[in-house]
């Protein structure tokens, strides 16, 4: 075996091992059974007003226009699928988009709250991302806080006439970061630090998840911007039908 071949084999081995152990960096779904009972219930109750509003809104839309039913269903499935697709990333790790930013921009935050909770139930049952007991907490951070914040940033930038690409980038990545902050605070509230209480604990959770979440937010922002620009340039009628333009 020549020196070159040996080097190649070593490189391939290192590469394959790195890929083999590289874990999927998902969005921060709080795992099943991770939160104490009181917190599970409290976050669930906190979600209720948003869900009821979303439900009413969907019902009203459906009474006006029956066709919206299949469109909503497809939108939900679309959000699920983009959150389960592996995205290309520079480091070669296999991460997933969260899809909350794109969902909020395309379908509006109210319908995303209802669709988001259904998507979270499916993610728990089909993929074991998140869980049934942590559904309330996850719904609050990913189906409510993230989309609403994303949409707020989007609306604000649109009002200030910021460049389209930058608007979408900011909306998606800041929405992502906000979700990650909310989840960290949720964890910190449930598990305050022995030295320094809730605040210190929040800092710990934020810093522990930062290496996976910060690059993800940037990548998600870039991809969402590219997707929205792509859609705007050749999917005008479809965008109109989901109420985007």
């Amino acid at each position: 075996m020549t020196q070159k071949q040996k080097k190649q084999i070593t490189a391939i081995t290192v590469f394959s091992i790195a890929f083999g152990i590289c874990p999927a960096a998902n969005a921060m779904h709080i795992m099943e059974g991770y939160l104490p009972v009181a917190y599970c219930i409290a976050w669930g109750v906190l979600c209720l007003p948003f869900l009821v509003t979303g439900f009413m809104k969907i019902k009203k839309t459906l009474d006006e226009n029956r066709r919206a039913m299949t469109l909503l269903a497809i939108s939900g499935a679309f959000i699920f699928v983009i959150s389960s697709l592996k995205i290309p990333s520079v480091t070669g790790s296999c991460s997933h988009m969260t899809g909350t930013g794109l969902g909020a921009i395309l379908f509006g935050p109210c319908s995303v709250s209802i669709l988001g909770i259904i998507v979270l139930i499916f993610q728990a049952v089909i993929l074991a991302h998140g869980g049934l007991t942590s559904l309330g907490a996850n719904a609050f951070s990913m189906a409510i806080a993230g989309p609403f914040f994303s949409y707020g940033v989007y609306a604000l930038c649109k009002k200030c006439n910021v460049n389209r690409r930058i608007t979408v980038f900011l909306a998606a990545s800041i929405g992502d970061l906000f979700t990650y902050c909310v989840t960290s605070v949720q964890l910190a509230l449930a598990y305050p630090s022995e030295a320094g209480g809730v605040l210190a604990s929040a800092v710990k959770f934020l810093s522990v998840f930062a290496p996976t979440q910060l690059p993800l937010a940037v990548v998600e922002g870039l991809l969402t911007a590219a997707i929205v620009i792509c859609l705007e340039s050749f999917a005008k009628p479809e965008l109109k039908s989901v109420g985007y333009i």
Binding site: T70, A73, I74, F78, P88, A226, I227
Partner: peptide, 23 residues
């Protein structure tokens, strides 16, 4: 990155079309 964006947007268009057909 470009392919991913193109793929997601064509999936979006195809799904919206599908939803009409489904209805």
């Amino acid at each position: 990155k470009k392919s991913f964006a193109a793929m997601v947007s064509s999936v979006f268009i195809l799904s919206v079309r599908r939803s009409g057909e489904l209805y």
